[in-house]
Design a protein around this nucleic acid. Structure first.
Lengths: 113, 113
DNA sequence: TGTAAATACATCAGTTTCTTATGTATCTTT
DNA sequence: AAAGATACATAAGAAACTGATGTATTTACA
């Protein structure tokens, strides 16, 4: 099983920021594998979604990068900047609040007819 | 406060279906007001998002409609069809499961209200 | 030893799902 | 009388994906 894709929309940036907050530095491919593993294959981040997101986070100044060579193959590590850390807290708490609201909304049994 | 708009993406259809499951029949404007009221203005469904969604649900056979006149003004009521009821259960439990996964991923502690 | 799978980056056309604006019309409140 | 609320609807444009495609290296294994 994995979720219908529209659910993930809007949460990807938050997931990436949170992972970086917990792991100091990570590279793209590692992020996709970590999410896959942590969610037991329920959430699969595609590369077509991830790389543009990482580039956008960098353009916005929320992450910094450093390139490393593993043999001849390049690996690009991402780390949170100070503003990125602030942004992460904002996004995570916003998402937490949103999920509380959604939980309430989906539990209600109001027969007002 | 209200949520950055991308969070709502993908949840609108589920919200609408769930409201219809709890209230037998509702009309569009009523749905926008109910959500606004239940979420204390945190979630505002725009008409530009809602009406196309309702039309899509009807085209997919998940809802049926009946028109009523209030004076000279038309009001279009939406009700769940049998397949719509099944779909609602699927969508609601999928979203609930997704939120659990996200909570785990983000290490979010849910408030015990 | 050769080839498939995994690792690792990237771009881009097309799709879905919204926002924002616009339009029409009626009813209610001040 | 005018403003705001009620009630429907469509449409251009933006945002955020999917899925395909591309390049190249490394590892597993038959």
């Amino acid at each position: 099983m994995n979720y219908s894709s529209e659910l993930l929309k809007g949460t990807l940036k938050t997931i990436v920021l949170k992972l970086l907050a917990d792991n100091k530095k990570m590279y793209g491919y590692e992020i996709t594998q970590r999410v896959k593993e942590l969610t037991l294959d329920k959430i699969q981040i595609t590369e077509g979604a991830l790389y543009p997101t990482l580039h956008a986070l960098e353009a916005d100044g929320f992450v910094t990068t450093e390139t490393e060579f593993i043999g001849k193959r390049v690996r690009k590590y991402y780390s949170l900047s100070p503003t990125g850390k602030t942004k992460t807290k904002e996004k995570v708490s916003e998402l937490a609040d949103f999920m509380e609201t959604m939980k309430f909304l989906l539990d209600i049994k109001t027969k007002t007819t």
